[in-house]
Lab assay of single mutants.
Amino acid sequence: DTLHVTQDGKHIELRGLSEEEIKLVEELLRRGRKVEEALKIIEELRK
C-alpha cells in the first residue's frame, strides 16, 4: 500500500508498506517522529 505524508512542507509518498506498517508509521508521526526515523524503524522491524 501507499501512504501519503506531508512533512516540513514536503509531500512524501511511501510505497510498498503493509497495512500494519502504515499504521505504525502513522502512529510514529503522530508522536512527533520524522518520516526518515519512522522508515528506519520499519526497516529494522523487517529484518
Score class of each variant (00 low, 15 high):
Asp1Glu: 11
Asp1Gln: 11
Asp1Arg: 03
Asp1Lys: 05
Asp1Thr: 09
Asp1Tyr: 03
Asp1Pro: 15
Asp1Gly: 15
Thr2Leu: 04
Thr2Tyr: 09
Thr2Glu: 08
Leu3His: 11
Leu3Met: 12
Leu3Val: 11
Leu3Ala: 08
Leu3Ser: 10
Leu3Tyr: 04
His4Trp: 12
His4Lys: 06
His4Arg: 04
His4Leu: 13
His4Ile: 15
His4Tyr: 04
Val5Trp: 04
Val5Pro: 06
Val5Phe: 04
Val5Lys: 03
Val5Ser: 07
Val5Gly: 07
Val5His: 07
Val5Asp: 07
Thr6Lys: 04
Thr6Tyr: 12
Thr6Ser: 09
Gln7Lys: 02
Gln7Thr: 08
Gln7Ser: 12
Asp8Arg: 00
Asp8Phe: 01
Asp8Lys: 01
Asp8Cys: 05
Asp8Ile: 03
Gly9Glu: 09
Gly9Lys: 01
Gly9Trp: 02
Gly9Arg: 01
Gly9Val: 03
Gly9Ser: 04
Lys10Val: 15
Lys10Asp: 13
Lys10Ile: 15
Lys10Gly: 09
His11Pro: 12
His11Lys: 07
His11Leu: 13
His11Asp: 14
His11Arg: 06
His11Glu: 14
Ile12Lys: 05
Ile12Asn: 07
Ile12Ala: 05
Glu13Ala: 10
Glu13Asn: 08
Glu13Phe: 11
Leu14Lys: 02
Leu14Asp: 04
Leu14Asn: 04
Leu14Phe: 05
Leu14Tyr: 04
Gly16Cys: 04
Gly16Trp: 05
Gly16Phe: 07
Gly16Asn: 10
Gly16His: 06
Leu17Phe: 11
Leu17Thr: 00
Leu17Cys: 01
Leu17Ile: 03
Ser18Gly: 03
Ser18Met: 05
Ser18Asn: 09
Ser18Asp: 08
Ser18Ala: 07
Ser18Leu: 07
Glu19Gly: 13
Glu19Phe: 14
Glu19Pro: 15
Glu20Gln: 11
Glu20Met: 14
Glu20Val: 13
Glu21Tyr: 02
Glu21Pro: 00
Glu21Gln: 01
Glu21Arg: 00
Glu21Phe: 02
Glu21Ala: 01
Glu21Val: 01
Ile22Trp: 10
Ile22Gly: 08
Ile22Leu: 09
Ile22His: 07
Ile22Met: 13
Ile22Phe: 10
Lys23Cys: 06
Lys23Ile: 12
Lys23Trp: 10
Leu24Ile: 13
Leu24Lys: 06
Leu24Ala: 05
Val25Trp: 04
Val25Ser: 00
Val25Arg: 00
Val25Phe: 11
Val25Lys: 01
Glu26Tyr: 14
Glu26Phe: 14
Glu26Thr: 15
Glu26Ser: 12
Glu26Arg: 15
Glu26Leu: 15
Glu26Gln: 14
Glu26Asp: 10
Glu27Ala: 11
Glu27Cys: 02
Glu27Asp: 14
Glu27Pro: 01
Glu27Tyr: 12
Glu27Ile: 11
Glu27Ser: 09
Leu28Gln: 05
Leu28Asn: 03
Leu29Glu: 01
Leu29Trp: 02
Leu29Thr: 05
Leu29Arg: 03
Leu29His: 02
Leu29Ala: 02
Arg30Trp: 08
Arg30Lys: 13
Arg30Ser: 12
Arg30Asn: 09
Arg30Cys: 07
Arg30Val: 08
Arg31Val: 13
Arg31Gly: 12
Arg31Leu: 12
Arg31His: 13
Arg31Lys: 12
Gly32Cys: 03
Gly32Glu: 03
Gly32Tyr: 02
Arg33Trp: 15
Arg33Ala: 15
Arg33Val: 15
Arg33Leu: 15
Arg33Pro: 01
Arg33Asn: 12
Arg33Tyr: 15
Lys34Arg: 13
Lys34Trp: 06
Lys34Ala: 09
Lys34Gly: 10
Lys34Gln: 08
Lys34Pro: 12
Lys34Met: 07
Val35Ser: 03
Val35Arg: 02
Val35Tyr: 06
Val35His: 04
Val35Glu: 04
Val35Lys: 03
Val35Met: 07
Glu36Lys: 08
Glu36Gly: 07
Glu36Arg: 07
Glu36Leu: 10
Glu37Gln: 09
Ala38Ile: 15
Ala38Asn: 00
Ala38Asp: 00
Ala38Cys: 08
Ala38Ser: 04
Ala38Lys: 00
Ala38Tyr: 02
Leu39Lys: 04
Leu39Val: 09
Leu39Asp: 00
Leu39Ser: 02
Lys40Gln: 14
Lys40Cys: 11
Lys40Trp: 11
Lys40Phe: 12
Ile41Thr: 07
Ile41Ala: 09
Ile41Phe: 12
Ile42Leu: 09
Ile42Pro: 00
Ile42Gln: 00
Ile42Asp: 00
Ile42Trp: 01
Ile42Phe: 01
Ile42Thr: 01
Glu43Val: 08
Glu43Phe: 08
Glu43Thr: 06
Glu43Gln: 10
Glu44Val: 07
Glu44Ser: 06
Leu45Trp: 08
Leu45Gly: 06
Leu45Arg: 05
Leu45Val: 06
Leu45Ala: 09
Arg46Ile: 02
Arg46Met: 03
Arg46Asn: 03
Arg46Thr: 02
Arg46Ala: 03
Lys47Tyr: 12
Lys47Leu: 15
Lys47Glu: 12
Lys47Asp: 11
